[in-house]
Design a binder for these strands. Structure first.
Length: 204
DNA sequence: CCTATATGCGATTTACATCA
DNA sequence: TTGATGTAAATCGCATATAG
């Protein structure tokens, strides 16, 4: 038999309209009262069970939802009579559909943010490993400068080695690449004070 | 303002389908 | 067959808007 007729048998409880007027918001603990099932109440025929909407009904509702997520009462009544449903069912369907849509959007947004987060974490790791490599390079440069400085100190005043001087200058120039790096300047200046200024003055 | 009514939303319950 | 679980439909309580 026609499924739609079966659906017609579903009498949904019409809204009682008993919207008790709004008690002022209870400040803290507001226990949600347990609801008792409205079994065979005045608006509920006994034995009438909840039925899923037919695929055709859902298709039409989906189509309408795609156009407009809100439901004006005119459209609600039109859909209800077109589908053989209680207008309240149409309203409830739209309400639940909006909730599902919102959930889906939130999930999409969450997964977008998650992938952005993952990419940022990866980039952070890469940058950190680059920092480690550069620090190692810097440390090598410091050692090299120190080594060259000691060699210069060891030379006699009348036999300046121009190639050695150039080496030291190169190393210093390398450090220059790290301009603005405070601890680099600090160490470099120390080297100057301890070794550099002396040997530079010697040959100027 | 006050009241009634309609509607929306979040949270929850209920009925039903499906699967192990 | 049955219990666990997922999901759509329905309900409830509250907020807000609007009309009279």
């Amino acid at each position: 038999m026609n499924k739609l007729e079966d659906e017609m048998a579903l009498i949904s409880p019409s809204y009682s309209g008993a919207y008790s007027q709004i008690a002022p918001q209870q400040a803290e603990a507001k226990p949600r009262r347990r609801r008792k099932r409205n079994k065979g109440g005045e608006n509920n025929l006994p034995g009438v069970k909840k039925r899923k909407l037919t695929q055709e009904q859902v298709d039409v509702l989906e189509q309408n939802f795609g156009n407009e997520h809100k439901l004006e009462s005119e459209k609600k009544d039109r859909l209800a009579s077109e589908l053989g449903l209680d207008p309240r069912q149409v309203a409830v369907w739209f309400q639940n559909r909006r909730a599902r849509w919102k959930n889906k959007k939130l999930e999409e947004e969450f997964s977008k943010l998650q992938s952005i987060h993952d990419a940022v974490v990866l980039e952070k790791c890469q940058l950190e490993s680059e920092v480690i490599k550069l620090k190692e390079k810097l440390s090598e440069a410091h050692k090299e400068i120190q080594r060259l400085g000691e060699r210069v100190d060891g030379l006699s005043i009348n036999s300046p080695s121009s190639s050695l001087t150039m080496e030291a200058m190169d190393a210093a120039a390398f450090l220059g690449e790290f301009g603005g790096h405070e601890d680099v300047f600090y160490i470099a200046e120390n080297n100057y004070n301890i070794h550099g200024m002396e040997w530079i003055n010697l040959y100027m």
